[in-house]
């Protein structure tokens, strides 16, 4: 068996397989299908300072080899996470990473401060790339100044591993990555969803209540692989790759492009056991290719 252990900053993952925020609930939703302890970690859904109801229905439409969503960060808030969800997650030994979001820099800072004392939260993923909220979210992620200012504030509030999740809806994602690296981010994860739109031509109206939404699924994968490759050449911190990973082959593709770890998102909706199948594939792949340590293949391209 090859070594699958990878490190993201000070965070040690038993394997590179993580779950993308907003696609895996709090992990528990998938406990009937897989042994959650087999994952490197799970990234729980986008958490904000105050509870949020999210956007109006309809929030989702299937598109060719993918889907558009406009959930809008519906969640019960960070206090609910700390008091109700966190204690239940302690039974798992996989890493628990909290994805945080906010409407202002102060929101981000406060959420990070509240999570910092929790022993088992050894990393947070800062979402500066949600395309589905009116203020904040992607607004911070589309300029180097915005991305840097959020990173700086969260860095001061959270001493453990800090991952910043980047938006693909920018001219140069490498520039944004360099900006957050300069402010002390330990890692960047990419890509969040691509902004998209679909229209019901019979009813002559958009499918989503918000008109536009975030595109995910296999359709975005070549864009995501390209961006992971570009960013991994531009920064020294580890890159976490995601975007349309449907199986083990796709996960390896991201690692060859430069990803130290990967996140599985939309594929969880189609195959709730896909994450552990990817772990198995990685073992098999390493064996077939004579790889003793999966870190050897990271960024081979």
């Amino acid at each position: 068996m090859a070594n699958l252990n990878v490190n993201i900053g000070n965070l040690s993952l038993k394997n590179p397989v993580l779950t993308a925020s907003g696609t895996f609930g709090y992990g528990e939703e998938f406990a009937d299908f897989i042994d959650l302890n087999r994952l490197g970690g799970f990234i729980v859904k986008g958490t904000t300072l105050e509870p949020r109801q999210g956007n109006d229905y309809p929030r989702m439409v299937e598109t060719p080899s993918g889907m558009l969503n406009a959930v809008g960060l519906q969640n019960k808030g960070v206090e609910y996470f700390i008091s109700e969800i966190y204690p239940r997650l302690l039974q798992y030994d996989s890493e628990i990473i909290v994805n945080i979001s906010g409407s202002s820099i102060d929101d981000y800072r406060k959420v990070a401060e509240m999570l910092a004392p929790l022993d088992r939260i050894r990393a947070i993923e800062v979402n500066i790339s949600c395309p589905n909220v009116k203020s904040g979210g992607m607004a911070f992620g589309t300029t180097t100044e915005g991305a840097a200012s959020v990173t700086k504030a969260v860095r001061e509030a959270f001493p453990k591993t800090l991952i910043v999740k980047l938006s693909p809806n920018v001219t140069s994602i490498a520039d944004i990555a360099r900006a957050v690296e300069a402010e002390g981010a330990d890692s960047v994860s990419l890509i969040n969803t691509l902004m998209g739109m679909a229209i019901d031509v019979e009813r002559q109206r958009p499918y989503l209540s918000t008109i536009t939404g975030g595109l995910s699924g296999a359709a975005v994968r070549p864009v995501a692989v390209r961006m992971v490759w570009q960013v991994s050449k531009a920064v020294k911190i580890p890159v976490i790759g995601l975007g349309g990973i449907m199986n083990g082959r796709d996960a390896i593709e991201f690692m060859l492009a430069g990803a130290r770890a990967i996140e599985v998102g939309t594929a969880n909706f189609i195959n709730p056991a896909v994450t552990v199948e990817i772990v198995d594939y990685m073992n098999d792949y390493c064996e077939r290719h004579g790889v003793k340590d999966i870190n050897e293949i990271v960024g081979m391209i």
Partner: peptide
């Protein structure tokens, strides 16, 4: 309601 995951993870099929 139109849904993706079916298990309460994606929050797409919400009803008020």
């Amino acid at each position: 309601n139109v849904m993706a995951c079916g298990v309460g993870a994606c929050l797409c099929c919400v009803e008020k």
